[in-house]
């Protein structure tokens, strides 16, 4: 197991490294931030001075070398716009995004798996067909449009929930969280549902397809032939088998939820990292963009690593072969 873990961590570091190169070069070609940052009436000397101060006069490889050296010490650069370390600015926004993503993930799993299993057990029933029809809407309608519709119905027409912002937060272990007060929770519900809808649909379809497949297996029939209650057959024999692909998807999707909550955060004015990224791209605030992307890569790679470990806990066959390998 340890050999396996060390090898997996090594692979993860390689992926992070490759991403660092891509991100840095990509951002370099987007445009010259000095053009955006500096006063249009500044003199050529001012422009040169600013370029030099920001280190933008050095060749690309040298800039990358400096960036890498600093990054290894935990310094991802200083924001051109805010004049503060980029990582600090992002980390300030991270809890809001994480909270949103985790609540959305919880919703999509807690609702998606039961609905998917139900639809898989009774594919021909009206309920099963309705669930499948609904899931098609869930992932084919554009996310921002779903968000606006949610606002229209629940905030504007019914007036039950606020349309945007984060509301009151409480501090727990040094982190600001919304879900402990009613005001915070009421602000959280709509964006979380919006972010969850797509993943929920995905999980429903995945759970249904796998349930149908597992139901045909001899071991399910054998479990019934042993006289087990239908409840135990579904909750133990079927559920544990469908969890393997579902956990994989959940892991991958959590990463993308954190990284790409951008649309939802923009629609609901949620003060998270996604909104910060959009603002930074508009201002060509390179260090923030790079730091954001690097952090995202780290999160996704970290989650994948975690998924592999959970995976091996769920499926004994993987545990054995990977440990040997």
């Amino acid at each position: 197991m340890i050999v396996y873990l060390v090898r997996r961590v090594g692979q993860s570091l390689l992926a992070v490294m490759a991403m660092a190169v891509l991100v840095f070069i990509g951002v370099y070609f987007i445009g010259n931030p000095v053009d955006v940052l500096i006063n249009p009436e500044a003199t050529q000397a001012d422009i040169l001075a600013t370029t030099e101060r920001l280190g933008l006069d050095k060749p690309l490889w040298q800039q990358f070398g400096i960036f890498l050296g600093n990054a290894l010490q935990g310094d991802l650069g200083t924001s051109f716009v805010y004049g503060r370390p980029a990582l600090d600015i992002i980390l300030e926004r991270l809890p809001a995004t994480m909270e949103l993503a985790l609540v959305a993930l919880f919703l999509s799993v807690a609702i998606g798996i039961p609905l998917g299993v139900w639809a898989g057990l009774r594919p021909e029933s009206i309920a099963g067909r309705t669930i499948m029809g609904g899931s098609i809407l869930g992932f084919s309608l554009p996310n921002f449009w779903q968000g606006m519709l949610l606002i229209l119905v629940f905030a504007v027409l019914l007036g039950w929930l606020p349309a945007g912002g984060r509301g009151a937060t409480t501090e727990v272990l040094g982190l600001q969280v919304s879900f402990l007060t009613w005001d915070g929770l009421s602000h959280l519900i709509l964006p979380a549902v919006n972010l969850a809808l797509f993943k929920m649909s995905l999980i429903i379809r995945l759970a249904r397809a796998n349930t149908r497949e597992v139901c045909l297996q001899d071991y399910v029939k054998f479990a019934r032939a042993k006289g087990l209650s239908p409840r135990r057959v579904v909750l133990v024999h079927i559920l544990k088998n469908i969890m393997i692909p579902v956990v994989t998807i959940i892991g991958l999707e959590l990463g993308s939820m954190v990284a790409f909550a951008i649309v939802t955060e923009t629609v609901f004015a949620w003060p998270g990292m996604g909104k910060l990224l959009i603002d930074s791209i508009n201002l060509l605030d390179r260090p923030v963009i790079v730091a954001y992307l690097m952090l995202t890569v780290l999160i996704i790679v970290g989650i994948n690593l975690l998924v592999d470990v959970i995976y091996s806990l769920l499926d004994p066959r993987i545990r054995l072969s990977e440990m040997k390998g």
Binding site: Q217, D218, K226, D315
Partner: peptide
């Protein structure tokens, strides 16, 4: 399972792998 039991054809498939 109690008074009537069954044994299946393919032993690779009758036991739940997980």
């Amino acid at each position: 399972g109690k008074r009537i039991a069954m044994i299946f054809q393919d032993p690779m498939m009758t036991l739940n792998p997980v």
